[in-house]
Design a protein around this nucleic acid. Structure first.
Ligand SMILES: [Mn+2]
Ligand SMILES: [Mn+2]
Ligand SMILES: [Zn+2]
Ligand SMILES: [Zn+2]
Lengths: 136, 136
DNA sequence: TACTAAATTGTAATCATTACAATTTAACAC
DNA sequence: GTGTTAAATTGTAATGATTACAATTTAGTA
């Protein structure tokens, strides 16, 4: 059975071609794309695709924790099929979002505050290696 | 000399009454307010205040690192006069943003990636203690 | 194959933020 | 204190991401 069909089936989500292509796109493009980037790319081969559907699919996949959304850029959400806890770097020059593989040793300590914790995000912002080289 | 005047002077920022009241508001309201919350409150006693000016003031203060902006909610920026590194909790029910006083032991490790680091944000999302109690 | 709740689609609305041009003003020199 | 000027403020319009909504289509099931 197709990998993406299986993911949706396991989560009791209706299987639609639109959800499958969004999921496939995120699986093959781990660049933390925006809804618009996903839509613009998929629209080429799926001319009937609606941007609302992309938003709906991303919402559904997020709700089921199949993907996670990032608020790192401030002006738009970005999506990540890697829903495990990892940190992110945002480059203020090129706008790229890069994975930062660091374990957060504070997770246990956070429980002491008495809040119910659903998500933990580590956002680092600055200028990426490449832009540093290019800009000098 | 007035506390807020001194802050602007030290940063070589022109002293305007608008910047002073925004700064004072953030100093006395450490609730991580939005631009609109700041504007709506200050507008009452400063009827000529423009929302654009609030945005401009927040931008200027952020650029000079007098305040920091948070992208934790995803749909709007929030502002914090405490520009030191500390973490934040966002309650999905009441929308409150709460300080989480935790040191991040990863800061040193982040330098190894070769990027220039300007900001580090730790965002925790879930349901706050109070809402847990109320909602049951 | 027929039924139905849910998903998709296209359009319009919303909301935070930014752009811009006209007016006002803070800082500085005299 | 007065005059000068670059910068700040103001109000309005534009932008851009996201959401609301109603009509149409479709996935899952019997
Ligand atoms: Mn990632
Ligand atoms: Mn804070
Ligand atoms: Zn870069
Ligand atoms: Zn709460």
């Amino acid at each position: 059975m197709d990998k993406y069909v299986k993911i949706l089936k396991n989560n009791h989500i209706k299987i639609t071609p639109q959800r499958l292509v969004v999921l496939e796109y995120l699986d093959k493009n781990c660049t933390h794309p925006t809804a618009d980037e996903i839509y613009s790319y998929l629209k080429k081969k799926n001319p009937s695709l609606s941007k609302t559907t992309v938003y709906n699919a991303l919402e559904t996949l997020s709700k089921h924790r199949i993907i996670q959304s990032l608020t790192i850029s401030g002006s738009e959400l970005r999506y990540d099929i890697d829903h495990g806890m990892h940190h992110h770097f945002y480059c203020k020059i090129c706008g790229n979002v890069i994975d930062i593989e660091l374990k957060c040793p504070n997770i246990e300590k956070m429980k002491q505050f008495g809040h119910k914790i659903d998500e933990i995000h580590g956002y680092i912002k600055g200028i990426c290696k490449n832009c540093l080289k290019r800009e000098g």
